[in-house]
Design a protein around this nucleic acid. Sequence first.
DNA 1: CGCTAAACAATCGTACACGATTTAATCGTA
DNA 2: TACGATTAAATCGTGTACGATTGTTTAGCG
Lengths: 152, 152
Amino acid sequence: MAGSQHDTPAVTARLDDFLCFSIYAAEHAFSRAYKPLLADIRLTYPQYLVMTVLWEEDDQSVGQLGTKLSLESSTLTPLLKRMEADGLLSRHRDKQDERVVRVKLTEPGDKLRERAAKIPACILGATGMSLEELGRLRDQITQLTQRLVEAS
Amino acid sequence: MAGSQHDTPAVTARLDDFLCFSIYAAEHAFSRAYKPLLADIRLTYPQYLVMTVLWEEDDQSVGQLGTKLSLESSTLTPLLKRMEADGLLSRHRDKQDERVVRVKLTEPGDKLRERAAKIPACILGATGMSLEELGRLRDQITQLTQRLVEAS
DNA sequence: CGCTAAACAATCGTACACGATTTAATCGTA
DNA sequence: TACGATTAAATCGTGTACGATTGTTTAGCG
Protein backbone atom coordinates (compact mmCIF):
# COMPACT_ATOMS: atom_id res chain seq x y z
CA MET A 1 0.00 0.00 0.00
CA ALA A 2 0.89 3.63 -0.01
CA GLY A 3 3.31 4.52 2.73
CA SER A 4 5.45 1.44 2.89
CA GLN A 5 8.48 3.32 4.06
CA HIS A 6 7.90 6.68 5.55
CA ASP A 7 5.11 9.04 4.68
CA THR A 8 2.10 9.40 6.91
CA PRO A 9 2.34 6.83 9.66
CA ALA A 10 -0.81 5.02 10.73
CA VAL A 11 -0.71 7.00 13.95
CA THR A 12 -3.44 9.54 14.38
CA ALA A 13 -2.89 12.52 16.60
CA ARG A 14 -4.97 12.29 19.74
CA LEU A 15 -7.57 14.98 20.16
CA ASP A 16 -6.17 15.84 23.56
CA ASP A 17 -2.86 16.69 21.92
CA PHE A 18 -4.43 19.40 19.83
CA LEU A 19 -3.89 22.94 20.97
CA CYS A 20 -6.91 23.92 18.92
CA PHE A 21 -9.07 21.51 20.88
CA SER A 22 -7.86 22.84 24.22
CA ILE A 23 -8.97 26.25 22.99
CA TYR A 24 -12.27 24.85 21.78
CA ALA A 25 -12.91 23.25 25.17
CA ALA A 26 -11.80 26.35 27.08
CA GLU A 27 -14.15 28.51 25.03
CA HIS A 28 -17.04 26.22 26.00
CA ALA A 29 -15.96 26.20 29.62
CA PHE A 30 -15.83 29.99 29.77
CA SER A 31 -19.17 30.29 28.08
CA ARG A 32 -20.68 27.94 30.65
CA ALA A 33 -18.96 29.63 33.57
CA TYR A 34 -20.37 32.98 32.50
CA LYS A 35 -23.85 31.67 31.81
CA PRO A 36 -25.29 31.71 35.35
CA LEU A 37 -23.69 35.08 36.08
CA LEU A 38 -25.03 36.57 32.89
CA ALA A 39 -28.46 35.03 33.34
CA ASP A 40 -28.96 37.42 36.27
CA ILE A 41 -28.66 40.39 33.96
CA ARG A 42 -30.35 38.69 31.01
CA LEU A 43 -27.38 38.71 28.66
CA THR A 44 -25.88 35.95 26.54
CA TYR A 45 -22.12 35.63 26.41
CA PRO A 46 -21.72 37.27 22.97
CA GLN A 47 -24.09 40.01 24.08
CA TYR A 48 -21.92 40.57 27.14
CA LEU A 49 -18.88 40.98 24.89
CA VAL A 50 -20.75 43.57 22.81
CA MET A 51 -21.77 45.43 25.95
CA THR A 52 -18.19 45.38 27.21
CA VAL A 53 -17.01 46.99 23.99
CA LEU A 54 -19.73 49.63 24.26
CA TRP A 55 -19.12 50.31 27.95
CA GLU A 56 -15.53 50.91 27.02
CA GLU A 57 -16.48 53.30 24.22
CA ASP A 58 -20.05 54.21 23.37
CA ASP A 59 -21.39 55.13 19.94
CA GLN A 60 -19.54 52.81 17.59
CA SER A 61 -20.39 51.59 14.12
CA VAL A 62 -21.32 47.99 13.36
CA GLY A 63 -18.05 47.73 11.49
CA GLN A 64 -16.00 48.89 14.46
CA LEU A 65 -17.73 46.40 16.72
CA GLY A 66 -17.07 43.70 14.14
CA THR A 67 -13.39 44.52 13.98
CA LYS A 68 -12.98 44.45 17.74
CA LEU A 69 -15.00 41.26 18.17
CA SER A 70 -13.87 39.53 14.98
CA LEU A 71 -17.48 39.16 13.89
CA GLU A 72 -19.19 39.70 10.54
CA SER A 73 -22.18 41.95 10.04
CA SER A 74 -24.14 38.80 9.30
CA THR A 75 -23.60 37.81 12.91
CA LEU A 76 -23.75 41.25 14.48
CA THR A 77 -26.87 42.60 12.81
CA PRO A 78 -29.29 40.04 14.25
CA LEU A 79 -27.47 40.08 17.58
CA LEU A 80 -27.72 43.86 17.82
CA LYS A 81 -31.37 43.77 16.78
CA ARG A 82 -32.14 41.42 19.66
CA MET A 83 -30.27 43.70 22.04
CA GLU A 84 -32.17 46.69 20.67
CA ALA A 85 -35.45 44.83 21.19
CA ASP A 86 -34.32 44.21 24.78
CA GLY A 87 -33.82 47.96 25.24
CA LEU A 88 -30.07 47.80 25.77
CA LEU A 89 -29.01 49.91 22.80
CA SER A 90 -30.17 51.90 19.80
CA ARG A 91 -29.20 51.62 16.14
CA HIS A 92 -29.30 54.59 13.78
CA ARG A 93 -27.88 55.43 10.39
CA ASP A 94 -25.04 57.95 10.55
CA LYS A 95 -26.16 61.32 9.21
CA GLN A 96 -22.76 62.02 7.64
CA ASP A 97 -22.53 58.63 5.96
CA GLU A 98 -25.80 56.80 5.52
CA ARG A 99 -24.02 53.51 4.89
CA VAL A 100 -22.90 53.37 8.49
CA VAL A 101 -25.09 52.26 11.37
CA ARG A 102 -24.08 53.66 14.73
CA VAL A 103 -24.78 51.73 17.91
CA LYS A 104 -25.39 53.61 21.16
CA LEU A 105 -26.17 52.44 24.66
CA THR A 106 -29.54 53.34 26.09
CA GLU A 107 -29.88 54.51 29.68
CA PRO A 108 -30.71 50.97 30.88
CA GLY A 109 -27.85 49.59 28.82
CA ASP A 110 -25.44 52.00 30.42
CA LYS A 111 -26.81 51.29 33.90
CA LEU A 112 -26.31 47.58 33.44
CA ARG A 113 -22.59 48.21 33.63
CA GLU A 114 -22.77 48.54 37.38
CA ARG A 115 -24.60 45.27 37.81
CA ALA A 116 -22.07 43.55 35.55
CA ALA A 117 -19.09 45.00 37.38
CA LYS A 118 -18.67 42.08 39.74
CA ILE A 119 -18.61 39.42 37.05
CA PRO A 120 -14.90 39.56 36.13
CA ALA A 121 -13.93 38.92 39.74
CA CYS A 122 -16.22 35.87 39.88
CA ILE A 123 -14.61 34.43 36.79
CA LEU A 124 -11.15 35.21 38.07
CA GLY A 125 -12.01 33.28 41.18
CA ALA A 126 -13.27 30.33 39.15
CA THR A 127 -9.99 30.13 37.24
CA GLY A 128 -8.04 29.89 40.46
CA MET A 129 -5.20 31.76 38.81
CA SER A 130 -3.33 34.87 39.82
CA LEU A 131 -3.66 38.01 37.75
CA GLU A 132 -0.05 37.62 36.62
CA GLU A 133 -0.48 34.04 35.43
CA LEU A 134 -3.71 34.99 33.76
CA GLY A 135 -2.14 37.95 32.01
CA ARG A 136 0.78 35.90 30.75
CA LEU A 137 -1.53 33.21 29.43
CA ARG A 138 -3.74 35.81 27.78
CA ASP A 139 -0.76 37.41 26.04
CA GLN A 140 0.47 34.07 24.72
CA ILE A 141 -2.95 33.26 23.33
CA THR A 142 -3.32 36.69 21.79
CA GLN A 143 0.04 36.30 20.10
CA LEU A 144 -1.00 32.90 18.82
CA THR A 145 -4.20 34.38 17.39
CA GLN A 146 -2.28 37.11 15.62
CA ARG A 147 -0.01 34.58 13.99
CA LEU A 148 -2.96 32.49 12.85
CA VAL A 149 -4.64 35.53 11.38
CA GLU A 150 -1.47 36.66 9.62
CA ALA A 151 -0.85 33.20 8.20
CA SER A 152 -4.26 33.07 6.59
CA MET B 1 -6.82 56.95 41.70
CA ALA B 2 -9.00 53.96 41.02
CA GLY B 3 -10.19 52.56 44.30
CA SER B 4 -10.47 55.64 46.43
CA GLN B 5 -11.37 53.03 48.96
CA HIS B 6 -13.54 50.27 47.65
CA ASP B 7 -16.67 50.09 45.61
CA THR B 8 -16.79 49.71 41.85
CA PRO B 9 -14.81 52.45 40.17
CA ALA B 10 -16.12 53.99 36.96
CA VAL B 11 -13.40 52.10 35.13
CA THR B 12 -14.57 49.30 32.90
CA ALA B 13 -12.27 46.44 32.15
CA ARG B 14 -11.08 46.57 28.57
CA LEU B 15 -12.15 43.68 26.40
CA ASP B 16 -8.55 43.09 25.42
CA ASP B 17 -7.72 42.47 29.06
CA PHE B 18 -10.10 39.53 29.25
CA LEU B 19 -8.56 36.11 29.11
CA CYS B 20 -11.95 34.78 28.06
CA PHE B 21 -11.94 37.07 25.07
CA SER B 22 -8.47 36.00 24.00
CA ILE B 23 -9.82 32.44 24.03
CA TYR B 24 -12.93 33.50 22.14
CA ALA B 25 -10.80 35.18 19.47
CA ALA B 26 -8.35 32.27 19.29
CA GLU B 27 -11.21 29.84 18.80
CA HIS B 28 -12.43 31.91 15.86
CA ALA B 29 -8.92 32.17 14.45
CA PHE B 30 -8.40 28.41 14.61
CA SER B 31 -11.76 27.74 13.04
CA ARG B 32 -10.87 30.07 10.18
CA ALA B 33 -7.38 28.66 9.78
CA TYR B 34 -8.80 25.15 9.47
CA LYS B 35 -11.59 26.13 7.12
CA PRO B 36 -9.69 26.10 3.80
CA LEU B 37 -7.85 22.91 4.74
CA LEU B 38 -11.05 21.18 5.74
CA ALA B 39 -12.93 22.43 2.71
CA ASP B 40 -10.73 20.13 0.62
CA ILE B 41 -12.09 17.10 2.41
CA ARG B 42 -15.59 18.52 2.85
CA LEU B 43 -15.61 18.68 6.63
CA THR B 44 -16.58 21.45 8.99
CA TYR B 45 -14.42 22.12 12.00
CA PRO B 46 -16.71 20.37 14.52
CA GLN B 47 -17.08 17.47 12.10
CA TYR B 48 -13.29 17.23 11.92
CA LEU B 49 -13.14 17.02 15.71
CA VAL B 50 -15.69 14.19 15.67
CA MET B 51 -13.70 12.38 13.00
CA THR B 52 -10.52 12.80 15.02
CA VAL B 53 -12.17 11.17 18.01
CA LEU B 54 -13.40 8.30 15.84
CA TRP B 55 -10.07 7.85 14.06
CA GLU B 56 -8.54 7.55 17.48
CA GLU B 57 -11.11 4.96 18.57
CA ASP B 58 -13.89 3.69 16.36
CA ASP B 59 -17.33 2.52 17.48
CA GLN B 60 -18.25 4.89 20.27
CA SER B 61 -21.60 5.87 21.71
CA VAL B 62 -23.09 9.34 21.28
CA GLY B 63 -22.57 9.82 24.98
CA GLN B 64 -18.87 8.98 24.81
CA LEU B 65 -18.39 11.40 21.94
CA GLY B 66 -20.24 14.04 23.92
CA THR B 67 -18.03 13.55 26.95
CA LYS B 68 -14.83 13.81 24.93
CA LEU B 69 -16.02 16.80 22.94
CA SER B 70 -18.00 18.52 25.72
CA LEU B 71 -21.10 18.50 23.55
CA GLU B 72 -24.72 17.65 24.31
CA SER B 73 -26.77 15.12 22.39
CA SER B 74 -28.83 18.06 21.15
CA THR B 75 -25.73 19.23 19.31
CA LEU B 76 -24.30 15.87 18.38
CA THR B 77 -27.39 14.16 17.02
CA PRO B 78 -27.99 16.55 14.12
CA LEU B 79 -24.26 16.83 13.49
CA LEU B 80 -23.88 13.06 13.31
CA LYS B 81 -26.94 12.77 11.08
CA ARG B 82 -25.37 15.16 8.61
CA MET B 83 -22.16 13.16 8.68
CA GLU B 84 -24.13 9.96 8.19
CA ALA B 85 -25.89 11.52 5.21
CA ASP B 86 -22.45 12.41 3.85
CA GLY B 87 -21.46 8.74 4.13
CA LEU B 88 -18.75 9.26 6.73
CA LEU B 89 -20.23 7.13 9.48
CA SER B 90 -23.13 4.91 10.52
CA ARG B 91 -25.42 5.13 13.56
CA HIS B 92 -27.08 2.08 15.07
CA ARG B 93 -28.80 1.24 18.33
CA ASP B 94 -26.67 -1.00 20.54
CA LYS B 95 -28.15 -4.53 20.64
CA GLN B 96 -27.18 -5.00 24.29
CA ASP B 97 -28.64 -1.69 25.40
CA GLU B 98 -31.18 -0.18 23.08
CA ARG B 99 -30.85 3.20 24.74
CA VAL B 100 -27.39 3.82 23.34
CA VAL B 101 -26.56 4.66 19.76
CA ARG B 102 -23.18 3.50 18.52
CA VAL B 103 -21.30 5.50 15.92
CA LYS B 104 -18.97 3.70 13.51
CA LEU B 105 -16.81 4.95 10.68
CA THR B 106 -17.67 3.80 7.19
CA GLU B 107 -14.98 2.76 4.76
CA PRO B 108 -14.85 6.26 3.19
CA GLY B 109 -14.83 7.81 6.65
CA ASP B 110 -11.87 5.70 7.66
CA LYS B 111 -10.07 6.42 4.39
CA LEU B 112 -10.45 10.13 4.89
CA ARG B 113 -7.96 9.86 7.72
CA GLU B 114 -5.08 9.67 5.25
CA ARG B 115 -6.16 12.77 3.42
CA ALA B 116 -6.52 14.62 6.71
CA ALA B 117 -3.13 13.52 7.97
CA LYS B 118 -1.27 16.54 6.72
CA ILE B 119 -3.57 19.09 8.33
CA PRO B 120 -2.00 19.25 11.80
CA ALA B 121 1.37 20.12 10.29
CA CYS B 122 -0.20 22.96 8.28
CA ILE B 123 -1.77 24.39 11.39
CA LEU B 124 1.44 23.98 13.34
CA GLY B 125 3.18 25.99 10.65
CA ALA B 126 0.55 28.70 10.82
CA THR B 127 1.04 29.10 14.56
CA GLY B 128 4.76 29.66 14.09
CA MET B 129 5.36 27.97 17.40
CA SER B 130 7.57 25.08 18.37
CA LEU B 131 6.05 21.84 19.54
CA GLU B 132 7.35 22.50 23.04
CA GLU B 133 5.83 25.97 23.29
CA LEU B 134 2.62 24.67 21.86
CA GLY B 135 2.49 21.80 24.29
CA ARG B 136 3.12 24.05 27.26
CA LEU B 137 0.42 26.45 26.17
CA ARG B 138 -2.01 23.61 25.58
CA ASP B 139 -1.39 22.21 29.05
CA GLN B 140 -1.96 25.56 30.69
CA ILE B 141 -5.22 26.02 28.82
CA THR B 142 -6.36 22.50 29.65
CA GLN B 143 -5.64 23.12 33.30
CA LEU B 144 -7.60 26.36 33.14
CA THR B 145 -10.55 24.55 31.60
CA GLN B 146 -10.51 21.91 34.30
CA ARG B 147 -10.63 24.58 36.99
CA LEU B 148 -13.50 26.35 35.30
CA VAL B 149 -15.44 23.11 35.01
CA GLU B 150 -14.74 22.20 38.63
CA ALA B 151 -15.79 25.62 39.87
CA SER B 152 -19.17 25.42 38.18
C1' DC C 1 -42.95 -9.16 39.80
C1' DG C 2 -44.06 -4.53 39.34
C1' DC C 3 -43.23 0.11 39.56
C1' DT C 4 -40.51 4.16 40.05
C1' DA C 5 -36.13 6.21 39.06
C1' DA C 6 -32.37 6.86 36.11
C1' DA C 7 -29.98 6.91 31.71
C1' DC C 8 -29.73 7.84 26.85
C1' DA C 9 -30.69 9.91 22.63
C1' DA C 10 -33.79 12.73 20.07
C1' DT C 11 -36.63 16.86 19.49
C1' DC C 12 -37.83 21.72 19.90
C1' DG C 13 -37.00 26.60 20.32
C1' DT C 14 -33.61 30.16 20.55
C1' DA C 15 -29.20 32.19 19.62
C1' DC C 16 -24.75 32.56 17.60
C1' DA C 17 -21.51 32.29 13.35
C1' DC C 18 -20.06 32.35 8.61
C1' DG C 19 -19.79 32.74 3.38
C1' DA C 20 -22.13 34.51 -0.49
C1' DT C 21 -25.15 37.67 -2.19
C1' DT C 22 -27.82 41.93 -2.19
C1' DT C 23 -28.90 46.74 -1.50
C1' DA C 24 -27.75 51.30 -0.76
C1' DA C 25 -24.52 55.05 -0.30
C1' DT C 26 -20.11 57.14 -1.23
C1' DC C 27 -15.78 57.66 -3.60
C1' DG C 28 -12.56 58.17 -7.60
C1' DT C 29 -11.51 59.42 -11.65
C1' DA C 30 -11.91 60.41 -16.32
C1' DT D 1 -20.39 65.45 -13.67
C1' DA D 2 -21.30 60.84 -14.71
C1' DC D 3 -20.43 56.26 -13.79
C1' DG D 4 -17.96 52.22 -12.38
C1' DA D 5 -15.59 50.65 -8.12
C1' DT D 6 -15.67 50.45 -3.32
C1' DT D 7 -17.62 50.29 1.22
C1' DA D 8 -21.16 49.22 4.84
C1' DA D 9 -25.04 46.65 6.47
C1' DA D 10 -28.43 43.55 5.81
C1' DT D 11 -30.25 39.19 4.09
C1' DC D 12 -30.22 34.25 3.10
C1' DG D 13 -28.98 29.45 3.74
C1' DT D 14 -26.44 26.21 6.39
C1' DG D 15 -24.33 24.54 10.49
C1' DT D 16 -23.15 24.50 15.28
C1' DA D 17 -24.56 25.01 20.38
C1' DC D 18 -27.47 24.79 24.46
C1' DG D 19 -31.43 24.19 27.90
C1' DA D 20 -35.70 22.05 28.51
C1' DT D 21 -38.59 18.49 27.34
C1' DT D 22 -39.92 13.96 25.52
C1' DG D 23 -39.91 9.00 24.57
C1' DT D 24 -37.72 4.64 25.31
C1' DT D 25 -35.16 1.48 27.56
C1' DT D 26 -32.81 -0.25 31.51
C1' DA D 27 -31.78 -0.49 36.47
C1' DG D 28 -33.08 -0.71 41.25
C1' DC D 29 -35.68 -1.87 44.93
C1' DG D 30 -39.43 -3.49 47.68
